[in-house]
Design a protein around this nucleic acid. Structure first.
Lengths: 221, 221
DNA sequence: CATTTTTTGTGATTTTTTTATCTAGTTCGT
DNA sequence: ACGAACTAGATAAAAAAATCACAAAAAATG
């Protein structure tokens, strides 16, 4: 693992897309697949698909393609989806609650096991996720204690923007290693902590820009 | 506008981030800013910031920097934020409802004005957004009619994955020009329609991968 | 007003990412 | 078992994006 070739960032971002697609194939009972069919489904060039896979070794067979279930279980391990990933939501507003109920897609092995909020009223909210499991909400002052006790190293940040950096600092102090940041602020963290930004407004504005200016944008293939 | 230089895709995706940051500066009464301060706040290289801006002309002054309010109103126009952008949510589940309530950030001029769902029960849901405005939910069979009547060309797709492609086809038929796709499926659309994918599970899995393998990823700066 | 400092805008370079093309290994039908 | 049809993996090329580094312009200073 240590001497493994470095994976390009762009490839890493596509891995979950491959994983999801392979899951649907597997569920549909499809046994084999080739790069051009994958390409068609996920809208990346077939050469890109093959290149991405090849960073992890020779996963396919020439003249045949890829064995769906083998590839799926390989990527399952790569993406740590072969074990349960427990995460916490910080900020139990509209979005936070929606995430806690949805709890990500069925094919993923991610579980939101608790929420935190600064507002005491939020603790009385009874949240039940799609598997019928109830998800407790604690006060943010219990953050460090609860995260440690449950070995949680990933947090979803859905607090209002004014609180985002302050809560981030608390998360970092509590030993969090990754933050899925829904706030529009670009939070500052030590280099040992990973941040993935999922800003809905940004996505929407980018879309509007693309729609309104699509002839001005390069490679609008 | 027609002979304007083409804007790189990567730049286009950063524009909303600049816009948001400039809004916060402006709100804070800050009059001027330079590329290195912007860089620090949004975590992109200062040269990247200047290069991005320069695609739109000479927006700054040497030895001075950028005038915040001038830059803000310029980007406001670029991102069509100087006019109201009406959008519709298709799929009024947990996530759809959360979006309808939140209605994007305060600085954005985007308004979710209606929702659609295939389930008749959803029509009875009384949704009120953060501005106290009520947002109606219609049956999907009214899609084309309602979208046309209200001149809506952008939709947010929050339907279950099995329905995603089918509903997409209906949206395309109804003349939609942009789709913010929350489903894990990579939907197929004609080239005249823009799709922006915001997959929460994907974002989370990418984050987990980065956390678990961060030394294996290139340029983990 | 001359000098120093600041900071942009951009040519040049490097890095990263994508795509094209080819080779060699596999499969599959006969 | 053989030849045609496939298709991954690799090499090379191209394109896109990020970064370096500096001249030119403006601002600030004394």
């Amino acid at each position: 693992m240590t001497s493994e070739n470095q994976i390009p960032r762009a490839t890493a971002q596509r891995l979950p897309i491959y994983y999801y697609y392979l899951s649907t194939l597997n569920d549909a009972g499809i046994k084999r697949i080739n790069s051009s069919e994958i390409s068609e489904a996920i809208k990346f060039d077939a050469a890109t698909v093959r290149r991405d896979f090849s960073y992890f070794g020779a996963l396919g067979k020439r003249g045949f393609g890829y064995d769906v279930s083998a590839l799926l279980s390989f990527f399952s391990k790569v993406l740590s989806q072969d074990k349960l990933n427990k995460v916490a939501v910080v900020g139990v507003g509209n979005l936070g609650q929606a995430l806690m109920k949805n709890n990500f897609s069925h094919t993923s092995n991610i579980e939101i096991v608790m929420g935190f909020d600064a507002d005491d009223d939020k603790r009385s909210i009874k949240l039940v996720n799609e598997m019928g499991k109830s998800v407790p909400v604690y006060h943010v002052k219990e953050l460090a204690e609860r995260l440690h006790a449950n070995n949680i190293t990933i947090a979803i940040l859905t607090v209002p923007e004014k609180a985002a950096q302050e809560v981030t600092d608390q998360l970092v102090a509590a030993g969090i290693k990754g933050i899925l940041n829904f706030s529009p602020i670009r939070i500052t963290v030590p280099s040992s902590v990973r941040v993935q930004n999922v800003d809905l407004t940004t996505g929407m504005q980018t879309l509007i820009y693309f729609v309104d200016n699509f002839k001005n944008i390069k490679s609008a293939k």
